[in-house]
Simulated assay, not measured.
Amino acid sequence: METQKIYKKQEVIVEIFQRLSAMRDSKLCDITLVVDDVKIHAHKVVLAACSEFMKTLLTGDFKEYQQPTIKLSEINAEAANQVVNYMYGSSIKITIDNVFNILRISRMWFINTLLEECEQFLMKSLNISNALLIWTNFRLLDQNQIKTRAEDLLGCHFTTRNRNGYSAVPEKVDLITGTITSITSMNIARRDVALCGLDNFIYAIGGTDGNQALKYAERYNIHTNVWERLSDMNYPRKRAVAASVKGLLYVFGDLNNVGGAFNTISVYDPENKLWTDIPSEISFCCTEPLSITSDENMIYVFGKDNALGSGTNRVAVFNPETKTWNKDLIKSSISLTKTIYGAAFMKNFKSS
């Protein structure tokens, strides 16, 4: 005969944390964390229950931490707020832009469940476009598998060159060791191609065979060491540049304006294996190099805008979602007197 039964009410636990979270702006909060002048209100019991670090901090003999306000340093304020919300049962959005900040706090505060989530995210999202970022932060990671996988990808960045300037044999550059080795030959020897990494492929688009600009496009599989022929672009492009946003490739610019390439942006959909063209009110002249980079789903192109004259360089910002250029930035942008050979984004940069 059954004399007792234990009931577990998951709904009750969830409701309790929801109520605690709702009271974080009330007088019942007994601790405030301050990170870079950002105040995060909380309950000591919640922090201590979720973090061994916080438990030791709040219950130990540290006079400076017995105050109602505690200042924390060497962590990101936005990430700290997200982690505290996570302690109260809220979902947390992990992206390649915030994962290392969240990972750092998870490690410092001994929140193992969130630490594992960050490591799983890194393993799933690792590709050639973020491998260098992940590898440089590998000391934060417990999983050597992530470091090794990043190193494998870093060894697959390549360039195409030889003494005559035309080559079908790309060279793999290992960014860690600095060694250069040849990989499988491209199908057509050419130069002045637009290169772009997306997922586990490196795309080589357009270029010239020495006589004319090409519509040709192919991609290199870094795992199988095989080049795959893609459908041709609608317009030939030489000295173009390419960037990827949300799984699509965007190709800008041309040297010779053959067939209207100046006034269009070529877009490739790898899933449907289809090229389309977007009309562009800005056209870039590639008599000198163009540079391109992307950040937060926006594409930044540095180079000569034909409308400004042959001697003027500037930056223009393209929004792939609206398929338009940022006109406000275009009007206010300062002309660049020098050719821009490369461009990259740096997060949280502070000038001295």
Rank of each mutant, 00 (worst) to 15 (best):
D142I: 04
A131R: 03
S167H: 01
T159W: 05
T160Q: 10
G165Q: 06
V173K: 02
T159H: 13
F158R: 04
Q143E: 05
L175K: 04
F138G: 07
P170T: 07
L141T: 01
F158A: 05
S167Y: 01
R139K: 11
V169D: 06
G178M: 09
F158M: 11
C156P: 04
K172T: 05
T159G: 15
L133N: 08
Q145P: 00
D174V: 11
T179Y: 07
N144S: 14
L140E: 01
T136R: 12
Q143R: 08
V173G: 03
L132G: 03
P170E: 02
Y166F: 14
I146S: 00
L175C: 11
G155I: 03
K172E: 02
I134Q: 04
C156I: 07
L154T: 02
G165T: 06
K147E: 01
Y166D: 00
T136Y: 07
K172A: 12
N162S: 06
D174E: 10
I146A: 01
N130M: 04
A150Y: 01
T177W: 07
K172C: 10
V173A: 03
W135I: 03
S167R: 04
Y166E: 01
T177K: 12
L154G: 08
N164D: 09
T148C: 13
I134M: 08
R149W: 10
W135D: 00
D174N: 15
V173N: 03
N162H: 06
S167M: 07
C156F: 10
E151W: 03
Y166H: 07
L133K: 13
A168M: 10
L140I: 01
N137R: 13
V169S: 15
V169E: 04
R163D: 06
W135S: 01
L154P: 02
T179L: 15
G165C: 08
G155E: 00
N130Y: 02
D174C: 15
F158E: 00
Y166P: 01
A131S: 05
T159D: 06
T160Y: 07
Q145E: 10
T179K: 14
I134D: 05
D174T: 08
L132T: 11
Q143L: 09
H157Y: 14
I146V: 08
D152R: 13
Q145N: 12
D142S: 13
R139F: 11
L175N: 04
R139N: 10
T177P: 09
G155L: 09
L133F: 11
V173E: 00
R149H: 12
V169L: 14
K147F: 00
T159E: 08
A150I: 05
D174W: 10
S129Y: 00
A168C: 12
K172F: 08
T136F: 12
A150G: 02
A150N: 05
V169R: 12
L175P: 02
T177N: 11
G165N: 05
T179A: 15
H157T: 09
S129A: 09
T160R: 10
V173P: 00
T160P: 06
R163V: 04
E151Q: 11
E171F: 14
E151M: 15
T177Q: 10
V169W: 05
H157D: 08
A168H: 07
T160S: 15
S167G: 09
A131G: 07
A131P: 03
E171K: 14
S129H: 01
P170Y: 10
L154K: 05
